[in-house]
């Protein structure tokens, strides 16, 4: 790790010197200086100090080593259907291929009109009212948008209510944005339903909102309308 960082730092310096060298000034100096300079250790940003994403964590790193040694490992660690023989529907694949010709330019930053229109119709099927094309942003997976939605919202010290257990990107995204995830209990005894009392108990003056993962990863719970109404009532009451 350290070696790589130093290499990278060295590479950047080399690039800078090369640039001067091509201007015909210090080619010789650059070559000798690079050899002597001592590199400072390059550490990651302190913004990442409490950020944690163990789904691709240290145990996976060990599993990769074992695979490189030739061992076969059954990987039940990540929700990635394709390697288990789940194929993308053929119709989707065909349409992507057919339209690839037109895919080499940037689109509107919120995404292609036709795609957003289809999403808009989907919100109508799900009875979400009043959604226009401009209320939709397409991203590189939900992952990018989770990070974006937290970066756009949080100041240092702000709090977000995040389920426990959670899909850990949510906690990581809150932390990275300078906020604090307050974990509310999902109760195993009641089929992993969010505990509304615990949610109430964890609200402070700095709470900016609440995250619901429904259907839930990792518990497999599906929330009935009564629970959702209870959460809406709390949000309404606190004016977020």
């Amino acid at each position: 790790m350290l070696e790589k960082s130093v290499d990278y730092h060295g590479f950047q310096m080399l690039a800078r010197f090369n640039c001067m060298a091509t201007q015909g000034k210090i080619a010789h100096f650059a070559n000798t200086f690079i050899l002597r300079v001592t590199m400072q250790p390059l550490s990651k940003s302190s913004k990442l100090n409490n950020v944690c994403y163990d789904i691709r964590g240290p145990v996976l790193a060990r599993a990769k080593e074992m695979e490189e040694e030739g061992q076969r490992i059954i990987k039940l660690n990540i929700g990635n259907p394709a390697p288990f023989g789940f194929e993308a529907p053929e119709e989707i694949l065909q349409d992507v291929i057919r339209n690839m010709d037109g895919a080499s330019g940037y689109t509107d930053s919120k995404g292609l009109f036709a795609a957003r229109k289809a999403i808009m119709h989907y919100t109508q099927q799900k009875n979400i009212r009043g959604v226009g094309i401009d209320d939709i942003i397409i991203g590189n997976g939900v992952s990018e948008l989770i990070v974006m939605s937290m970066q756009a919202l949080l100041n240092n010290g702000d709090q977000v209510l995040v389920p426990m257990p959670d899909y850990p990107l949510w906690t990581a995204a809150v932390t990275l944005a300078g906020g604090t995830a307050r974990h509310y209990l999902c109760d195993e005894q009641s089929g992993w339903m969010p505990d509304l009392k615990d949610i109430e108990n964890k609200i402070t003056a700095n709470t900016r909102g609440i995250v619901l993962i429904n259907p839930n990863n990792p518990t497999g719970a599906l929330y009935p309308p009564e629970i959702l109404q209870g959460i809406i009532e709390i949000a309404r009451h606190h004016g977020w």
């Binding site: 989707i92 992507v96 690839m100 895919a103 080499s104 940037y106 689109t107 795609a115």
Partner: peptide
Amino acid sequence: CANVPGQLAIQT
């Protein structure tokens, strides 16, 4: 913007 080939899949 988001990856455009991926966006092409959404409508279908």
